[in-house]
Amino acid sequence: MVLDIIRPFFLGFYHAFKRTFTVKHPFVRLTPTERYRGRVVLNIDRCISCRSCVNICPNKALEMVKFEKKLVPQYDAGRCCLCNLCVEVCPAIALSMSYEVEFSEYTRKGLIHTPDRFSQPPKSFLFEKTVTVKILDKKRGVAHR
């Protein structure tokens, strides 16, 4: 019983001087894995206006609108669940997923990506300081570093 009370003390002290698991997020970011699914990006030139993506979307996040004499999808980031179904179904490979996940806006309307915004390349933070998860030592284990 005494050992059970004393043991956590040592364990707690031991961990207090170990490297932290969390990172100082706004200053340091985690590297997304290569398959990571962020915002959908449209390549307008490749789009053949076939509506397959609009039909498959479970949340009605995509909607056909007219843009430069062509029907292309418009994207509502607030409805999208990042399920990748539209990318898979697209016959012309016009849609792709990017690493971008930080698309919060102040208004609901700001979340709607009109075709010209939808087709812009994503804001990449890969060039900022990023770190990956690694297993450091076998005893304690893990840290982002």
Binding site: H15, A16, F17, K18, T20, F21, T22, K24, F27
Partner: peptide, 20 residues
């Protein structure tokens, strides 16, 4: 700060001098 270190967190970060 100390409890955060035990929990492998960082704790208060933004306010104050001496490098976060």
């Amino acid at each position: 700060k100390f409890l955060a270190r035990i929990m492998l967190r960082i704790g208060p970060l933004h306010i104050g001098p001496f490098n976060r």
